[in-house]
Simulated scan of single mutants.
Amino acid sequence: MPTTVPQGIKDDIKLLKSAAVHAGIIALGFFRTDMRTWTKNITSPVSEADIAVDNFLSGALRAARPDYGWLSEETADSPARLEHRRIFIVDPIDGTRGYIRGEDSWTISLAVVEDGVAVAGVVYAPARDEMYVGGLGLGATCNDVPLQAEHARSESPLIPAPAAVHHELATLGLSYTKGPAYPSLAYRLVQVAAGKLDAAVARRGAQDWDIAGADIILSEAGARFEDVCLGTPRYNGADTRHAALAATADISLLSPLCDALRVVYGCPQPDSDNPEPQA
């Protein structure tokens, strides 16, 4: 049975696309220049471009939808967001390390989440001129061309993953090819939606803003995306972090991927220390 399109989602997608284009222009203005950079939370890099893009997106999106909540990597969190059914979840520049190094696969990742579920998303790679879009019941596209996730390589699946996960997959006897290590998690995920990767994974500790935009694009393209400990990811909770994650259009890969990720990263316990926010 067809999915009912939530009210206002088509307009929200137009808003996200427009905001992403303008944010991309801002980010490209700093790209490959001698911009200021620093670190937060000891190890996470930040650039002045991250802040400039966040300031623009906060102003543009919140002014257009004042009744929506707000969660962004570069904005101080507020429990007020928990009072909203609909919320913007934003990563101004996903893949900041690569962005600072001058690599071109960084993205601007935007999502609208309703009652914990991603219903609209845009993942925009300005330096590659690629805009991935998904809306609940509306399908997924890249530069307006429909996406249909499918098993990209019949004999040797292409899978990027951290070294420890590669080791565990080898132990499990999975035959595959190691894929490219894009710094942007959102970009890796939408490559699964586009059929360019057979699977993508994330370490334990990814945040809502890392994955919400890509989530709806994966779903609408027909791919599976799972928290290996809890199943379907949920968003805008008190804790925005997730266990390890796996995305694939090849159902035969899902079980070994989830098994390997659980072995390497385990599952968070209610009273355990918080996981490191790594994507």
Rank of each mutant, 00 (worst) to 15 (best):
I108A: 05
D144T: 14
H242G: 07
R62A: 12
L169I: 11
S154H: 15
G8K: 06
A193Y: 09
A194D: 09
I159N: 09
G139S: 02
N55K: 14
Y265C: 04
R62M: 14
V117F: 06
S58P: 02
F225M: 06
E73M: 00
R97I: 11
A243G: 15
N236V: 12
T39P: 05
R204W: 01
T4N: 13
A243W: 03
L147A: 13
I89Y: 05
Q278L: 11
A127D: 09
V190W: 04
I51A: 10
A125Y: 00
Q278N: 11
H166W: 01
A238P: 04
E73A: 00
R153C: 15
G139Y: 00
R97L: 07
I42K: 08
L57M: 09
D129N: 15
A194G: 11
L245E: 03
S252A: 14
G121K: 06
A149E: 06
L147V: 13
D67W: 04
A238L: 04
L218K: 00
A279I: 05
A246G: 02
A118S: 15
G69Y: 05
P92F: 03
V117N: 08
K17N: 07
P233K: 02
L110S: 01
Q191L: 12
A125N: 07
V113A: 11
I159F: 03
V46Q: 01
Q148V: 13
T240V: 07
L15F: 11
V117I: 15
D215T: 05
D77N: 03
T43G: 00
K196E: 10
Y182C: 06
E103N: 07
A49V: 04
N143L: 12
R62G: 09
R101W: 03
E73N: 00
E168L: 09
A20R: 01
D34C: 04
S219P: 01
D12G: 08
V228F: 05
E114P: 09
Y235Q: 02
E48H: 07
R241C: 03
L61K: 03
A76K: 07
A125P: 09
E226W: 08
L158S: 14
D67M: 04
P66K: 01
R81Q: 02
D144W: 10
R101M: 13
L138S: 01
K40N: 03
E114W: 15
